[in-house]
């Protein structure tokens, strides 16, 4: 009989130890839990999310983008509302409230031994970075890894400083593609879907992971299927309004499923069975 988890809405404090200016309007916050016990309890897997609060302002949902092994955790934030605007005024040493971890992450145990295609669109990259770090730490347990990261303009590219380290690994191909051509960018252009099409994979032994805007996920899953990857092996991280994080407040429901509790990572097979439009 699984034990019941007990929840309240009280956050635990974490200190901002580093702020990285990733791109205009996007910052990464590196956080250290004030009490070591809290980090132990915040034992997360890639794809899970937390609810981060500034008392009096509000709470916002972020998937961790750091490796679960690190003592400190990282989240990447785009300022689109009151809570994220307030986060952008934070300095090193400020405190932020943390609740979580919540949700079902990417099924990294299930895809052991497989090749993995990771496709990220814009601000959908963070949870997939956590996935990548996890896979790279256990490199032998996984096959080939392709990462296709797409952004609208060259200014939107994040985690530039992580690229060199990732590329050092064997059989890891990282493709950053920019939608809007420009002089400063010598790299790939086009949509992520264009690059998925170019892949040569063994569909029977490949898993596809993706996170990004709803429209992108729809097209990416179509491309994955065109490559022959089965819906059970395609895993997508969805976004919805979250407030409680534990499947009670109702905001994140799609049909009878709760994105915070049954997701945010769903297989395409599960999404097809959803009783409401997903995208």
């Amino acid at each position: 009989m699984p034990k019941s988890d007990r929840h309240t809405y009280k956050p635990v404090p974490a200190e901002v130890v580093r702020i990285i200016d990733e791109a205009p309007g996007i910052k990464t916050f590196r956080l250290r839990f004030e009490r070591p016990g809290d980090r132990k309890r915040f034992d997360f897997l890639p794809g899970q999310f937390g609810l981060f609060s500034l008392m009096g302002i509000g709470e916002a949902t972020f998937s961790m983008c750091s490796s679960p092994r690190e003592e400190e955790i990282e989240i990447s934030v785009r300022n689109v509302g009151n809570t994220t605007d307030a986060m952008f005024t934070m300095k090193k040493g400020d405190l932020i409230g943390v609740r979580g971890p919540y949700g079902k992450g990417f099924p990294l145990d299930v895809v052991k031994g497989k090749d993995v295609v990771i496709v990220a669109g814009g601000i959908g990259f963070p949870p997939l970075v956590s996935v990548l770090e996890y896979l790279l730490f256990r490199r032998k347990d996984y096959g080939k890894i392709w990462v296709i990261y797409g952004v609208k303009t060259v200014d939107d590219i994040v985690y530039r400083y992580k690229g060199p380290r990732w590329r050092k690994h064997k059989d890891v191909t990282i493709t950053t593609t920019v939608e809007k051509k420009c002089r400063e960018w010598n790299g790939c252009t086009g949509m992520v879907t264009d690059h998925i099409r170019k892949l040569k994979i063994n569909p029977a032994n490949t898993a596809g992971f993706s996170c990004g805007p709803p429209v992108m996920l729809k097209f990416v899953s179509e491309e994955f299927q065109k490559l022959g990857i089965e819906p059970e092996n395609i895993h997508l991280s969805l976004e919805r309004m979250m407030q409680c994080g534990i499947g009670k407040c109702g905001h994140c429901n799609i049909g009878d499923k709760y994105v915070c509790r049954d997701g945010p990572v769903f297989s395409l097979a599960e999404l097809r069975r959803m009783q409401e439009d997903v995208w």
Binding site: S53, M55, G56, G58, E59, M241, Q243, C249, G250, H251
Partner: peptide, 30 residues
Amino acid sequence: CFSLKHEPDVTDLKNGEVKREMDYCMLLRF
């Protein structure tokens, strides 16, 4: 269905509460 609303104290902005307010899926904001 409910919302969690941050309600700072108007007499002292450094204090306040997080309240449960019922919310309704019939509304756009939901």
